[in-house]
């Protein structure tokens, strides 16, 4: 019980450090990456690339096991159908991301600066989670 709590907390720290080091918590840099028709900054391509390579190798090794270390079974996503909700949701997310340069992880890390901008973004994001939760 306590060890599970601690594991989520520690992995949260590791994830946060990764986001900060990679520059994801600097929206101007993120926008520079998305600005492929302007002065394009390719740094985040290296971030995505190395994250995907590391995870692909890690997942391959771990999924040979029958269970994770602290639970009885894996909780892998099972949905496989491509539907309108997926495309509509991803479109909306991309527009929001492109408008200000924050996606959820970096926003939740950067909000610790407690600036008006980051707090506004995060509160609105939670309002969005809540709205969809109501419908679901």
């Amino acid at each position: 019980m306590k060890i599970k709590f601690l594991s989520y907390f520690t992995i949260g720290i590791v994830f946060g450090v990764g986001l900060i080091l990679s520059g994801m918590t600097q929206p101007l840099k993120v926008l520079g990456f998305l600005d492929i028709f302007g002065s394009w900054d390719p740094t985040l391509a290296f971030v995505m690339g190395s994250a995907v390579i590391t995870t692909t190798i890690g997942y391959k090794l771990i999924l040979r096991r029958t269970s994770p270390l602290l639970e009885n079974n894996f909780f892998m996503p099972t949905a496989s159908t491509l539907d309108t909700k997926l495309v509509l949701g991803a479109s909306m997310f991309g527009i929001g991301w492109g408008l200000v340069g924050f996606c959820p992880g970096p926003a939740l890390t950067a909000v610790s600066s407690l600036t008006t901008g980051t707090v506004t973004f995060v509160l609105a994001m939670f309002a969005g989670f809540w709205l969809v939760g109501l419908v679901k």
């Binding site: 926003a107 609105a124 989670f129």
Partner: peptide, 30 residues
Amino acid sequence: LADSPVTDIKVLALAGLLVGVGTRLGNGCT
């Protein structure tokens, strides 16, 4: 940890809402 270059509160709120609703409808983000 930088702020967005966009400082208009209305735009930040709209973007946050789009990200919140969008990632739940689409079941995931970056």
